[in-house]
Design a protein around this nucleic acid. Structure first.
Lengths: 342, 342
DNA sequence: CGGATTTAAGAAAACGTTTTCTCAAGCATA
DNA sequence: TATGCTTGAGAAAACGTTTTCTTAAATCCG
């Protein structure tokens, strides 16, 4: 039965009931070893009886440890970020740390505003997506000595740690794979590259990979699309209109690939017989389409878990985790196949 | 250029630079009207020059307004919750409020733990999913006079507001629809109903709807499945093994329906010719399968937005938004059709 | 057994704001 | 001109913890 008083019980109340000083209560609650067995038990008993819940603001104010971590992702509507956040939150919760979540809608100015809010809330670490950010954002974090991690990229810069994968390398992998199937004219539906280094690097990697295989620019068509089904469809239409001969398309995301696939189906273009399509991310939806999507697997949950791990690690040992490159595996399914022999 | 000093700038620093008292700075920063034009401008200028960011903990401690809202959802891996949170976060951000996000893995004990953490962080409102919770959880919130809202349900109970829809009614809608197509033997793949009132009510609504149409229990098979593709597949297999004659299946989620559909395809069962399948949620994936899924549309984002609205509304006016029932629309696509004439 | 060292616990200061209280100045009214 | 009222601004208390500084008691060692 909770306390009869209608006032919120605070640390002094616990102290009174346990018959000791507030300092002792504080020490017990923070597992400070310098306190005797009996005192400790009395305090714990009193706290439980009163249903005491510490005041996080007061604690944070005095100790400068807020037990708060912030993240700013582009959107929660795209499963690839939701899954990362899922991993992040789960790991943080294990450590008793809470996660403040914000979205930027792929807008770096908005990201800056959200970062300001996070700093104001006193977060100890900020988890960001990608390595491209406003300089103001980075300065803000540096100035307050807040740790920050980039994800979905593995290039640590300045104070930033990076936990992710090599987007460029992944683009090269896609190029090599499609080329190995005999394709010689290619299309790519990239994500919007403005303000998005991941989308840009995937595209550049794909182009570089093809270049080093001797494929010239004239055999490659590139368009950009937002990350949703409709945009994928439209982009596919536009791409085929501009480059009717291409036989293989690399999409910057499974969502885009699914949209592209839908467009093909609506036009009677057979996949993979007429056209190979591969995606990126390996979301659950990749196995829902028919044919199922060949794609590159992004370790989204693992990035989140590791970012959480990073945030839980003390500032002294963090440098050991400064840069972590995870693998991007090629998952071959049935949306890709050998090029038509002409 | 940020302050040359390496110490974090605080309110007194701004006061010094503006040549006024801390109280005045505080008033300006909180838009207190009782401060003259020139003072106000001087303060704002000083704050900007110093790159001042207020300390949220101190502010929260003194004013008892944390500008923090918490939510506990079952998981972020299921898009239906991710989308709700997306709407919630977006609305809160507009009001300058931050969101702390936690997951419970459909476990009410875990939910309680997370709630404790939220109380400790000083959140002003908690957004929960469904109306079934541990009594300890509710008591905890009531005791600290923290506002709380249930979502995905429209039954307000006690202090709780509810913003959602009528799961039972939705189940009835499904029953009526399938019956109207001529089906007379039914299956349902419900979500796990233990600790999940939404899943339970959908099932009960479906059964009640069929009952009032004169369909007896012997013509209805029910199994439960977790919310993922594989479970949907398995459940479909189990269902057909137990009840080989059924011609229509209502699934508790589009994910489950997609899995069920996949199973049918693997077994050469034609949908909708041999079997009608309908889902729940109307996620993006419902249009990715072939055939596309008939489903019931859950207003996930709107629930989030409205819950955010509720949280931003002062305690005095909240009672006006105590219960809000949103519509669940039936979206007919091609996974459902007339029953086979025998 | 006495002095030095360790240990456990309390008193009080501190964290960075907001808010209450107080006061001075300006203004209108009589 | 004196009185009362309004307005703008400062001084200081307060929010609920943690932490530093002290001190009293307990332990050790020669």
């Amino acid at each position: 039965m909770p306390s009869p008083s209608s006032e919120k019980t605070k640390l002094v109340d616990v102290a009174k009931r346990a018959g000791c000083s507030p300092a002792t209560v504080s020490r017990v609650l923070n597992n400070n070893p310098k306190v005797g067995r009996n005192e400790r038990e009395r305090v714990l008993k009193a706290a439980a009886e009163l249903g005491y819940v510490p005041n996080g603001s007061a604690r944070a104010l005095r100790s400068t440890r807020s037990r708060l971590v912030g993240t700013i992702i582009p959107t929660l509507d795209h499963a690839i970020y939701a899954i990362m956040v899922s991993g992040l939150q789960a790991r943080l919760a294990e450590g008793g740390v809470s996660l403040i979540m914000n979205t930027s809608s792929y807008d770096l100015n908005m990201e800056y505003e959200q970062a300001r809010l996070l700093v104001e809330r006193g977060v100890e670490t900020v988890v960001l997506v990608g390595s491209e950010h406003k300089s103001e954002t980075i300065e803000l974090l540096q100035r307050d000595r807040i740790g920050y991690v980039f994800t979905y990229t593995c290039h640590a810069t300045g104070d930033a740690a990076a936990i992710g994968f090599d987007n460029k390398k992944a683009g090269v992998t896609a190029a090599n794979y499609l080329h190995s199937l005999g394709h010689r004219t290619f299309g790519m539906i990239a994500g919007i590259t403005n303000g998005n280094d991941r989308a840009r690097e995937r595209r550049d990697g794909f182009l570089a990979g093809l270049a080093s295989l001797g494929i010239g620019k004239e055999s490659i068509g590139v368009v950009e699309a937002r990350y949703d089904l409709g945009s994928g469809k439209q982009a596919m239409q536009a791409l085929l209109q501009l480059y009717p001969d291409l036989t293989a398309v690399f999409c910057g995301s499974d969502i885009i690939a699914a949209g592209a696939l839908k467009y093909c189906q609506s036009r009677g273009i057979r996949v993979p017989e007429d056209l190979s399509i591969i995606g990126f991310d390996n979301l659950e939806i990749a196995t829902l389409t028919s044919p199922e999507l060949t794609t590159l697997e992004v370790p989204a949950r693992e990035m989140g878990t590791l970012a959480g791990e990073y945030a839980l690690t003390g500032p002294e040992e963090r440098h050991l985790m400064r840069e972590r490159e995870l693998d991007v595996r090629l998952i071959v399914r049935s949306s890709s196949g050998a090029a038509k022999s002409v």
